[in-house]
Amino acid sequence: MTNMNLYSRGDKFFVIINMVLLALFTISALYPFIYIASLSMSTGFEARAGNVILTPVGFTLEAYKRVLSEPLFWSSYKNTFIYTIGGTLMSLAFIIPGAYALSRPQLYGRRFWNLMVAFTMWFNAGLIPFFLNMRDLGLLDSYFGIIIGFAVNGFNIILLRNFFEGIPQSFEEAARMDGANEFQVLWKVYVPLSKPAIATVALFCIVSRWNGFFWAMVLLQDEEKIPLQVYLRHVIVELSDDEEFANTLMTAAYSFETVSAAIIVCSIIPILLIYPFLQKYFNKGILLGGVKE
């Protein structure tokens, strides 16, 4: 298979065409990011005139200065970190022990508990009852509400439970002999053996927390509590309709477009930093997640 000499001329042609098409697709995936990055470093005038194609035109960092001088940008960035870190830790605190208990054969009513978890993946009450429930619980406009309200996810529990089930019983026997209780067995045997699966679940949580905007937009009214994505939406989606505002933001140095682009760049950077881990573990996760009840 790997020996190029075995290929006929037709094959070589095929392989080259294939590479060219793939390269085109890859470029189309990458180009929008390059375009946005270049836009963010161009002058407002050039951006407005539609002169930015590939590289920055009239290089300037004024748009970044404008973005970074905005207090709301910083507070929403800080909030996103709170929601992401707090939410992920909260999720793991629920999911790890829960998945472990569900993986134990001696658990009474195991089928029922598992079904109770799985059912939430097939049926959910929908936006309105969930929203009213959060309101009735007094969790509107609260950091805690956002962190606790999305802590558990059936898919993640089942993914981790399946992984725990795949660990041979023999691993825990030594610990059992030493009289370890369930908590000790989980913490000292199962958690260390499941690091890749736990990392996968943690990364699922981190990405969905970092990127989540819909419920934060619905549940948080207080500007000081909104995360970055809600702030982003406010600036780049809502204000883009407002031509008048867009014009007031326009100076020679930056324009609405370059400021939007600069905010986009600032919010993508953390995802890019953890991207090597994401790629590694998501690859595994998507395959581990061939979920079985």
Binding site: T26, A29, Y35, L39, R48, Q229, L232, R233, I236, S240
Partner: peptide, 29 residues
């Protein structure tokens, strides 16, 4: 390299994707 790049958009939030779409399809710029 190609795989690394084509997987990337999956990890970007819908707000940012929407922002890119709005910017790229904007009538003026």
């Amino acid at each position: 390299t190609a795989q690394t790049i084509v997987y990337l958009p999956h990890f970007i939030s819908s707000v940012i994707i929407a922002g890119i779409v709005i910017t790229a399809f904007s009538p003026s710029a």
